[in-house]
């Protein structure tokens, strides 16, 4: 109880909220990537609900992480130090990364609720930046985290971060393959007749013109 009684209570709460944000965001990214990769064939709606719940928990934890810091008597940051990237004195680079990640996650998370207004395709393109924000937040946690050297912290980070990171690499490598132009086909022997390429997508999606 003496720990809570002294002035480090706000600092402790902020650290815990930051760790919770890291855990929830990593789990949310994992769920989101599982949906995006179509790795789970059934119960996609349930996975989507889990993704949404974890994303909301992340935003709440980030808000607590920042707000409680304002009350910390030792660090005593200003509102600008909390809200503006690279403005504070405490580990400015890593804290700045965290602030950028927080704003990005907030904006992209909130954009889900105005998806119809901005268009589903545009929203999906925007939503991909969530992964980038998450990577920045991992950098922030490892670079500026007070507990970054503690074994329990590193173990818990590994448990939640590594699956998400693996799926992200799989996703990125998959999209790179999709973007890469098709390798030129080997020249067909002259004896064989060259068949014209069939417009597959068109033939599958559209009925032949009358």
């Amino acid at each position: 109880m003496s720990i809570l009684a002294d002035t480090t209570a706000f600092w402790v709460t902020s650290r815990a909220a930051g760790i919770a944000a890291m855990v929830c965001s990593s789990a949310a990214v994992t769920a989101g990537l599982l949906i995006g990769l179509k790795a789970v064939k059934t119960r996609t709606a349930e996975l989507r609900a889990i993704h949404e719940g974890l994303a909301l928990a992340t935003l709440a934890a980030i808000a607590l992480h920042a707000f409680v810091l304002l009350l910390d008597p030792w660090l005593h940051p200003s509102l600008g130090d909390i809200l503006v990237p690279f403005a504070g004195d405490y580990a400015p680079f890593w804290t700045g990364l965290g602030i950028i990640a927080a704003w990005t996650l907030l904006a992209l998370g909130a954009s889900y609720y105005v998806k119809d207004r901005i268009g589903a395709a545009r929203w999906r393109r925007l939503h991909r930046f969530t992964a980038l924000a998450w990577v920045l937040s991992v950098g922030h946690a490892l670079g500026a985290g007070t507990d970054a050297g503690a074994p329990w912290f590193l173990a818990s980070m590994a448990i939640v971060v590594l699956p998400a990171l693996t799926l992200l690499i799989v996703r990125l490598s998959g999209s790179e393959k999709a973007k890469a132009p098709a390798a030129p086909a080997a020249p067909a022997p002259r004896s064989e007749p060259v068949r014209p390429a069939r417009p597959r997508a068109q033939s599958l999606l559209r009925p032949p013109a009358a």
Binding site: C24, I50, E52, L54, L56, A57, T58, A61
Partner: peptide, 9 residues
């Protein structure tokens, strides 16, 4: 389900 995920957070 969403609320449970929130509670897990």
């Amino acid at each position: 389900i969403r609320n449970r995920a929130l509670a897990a957070g």
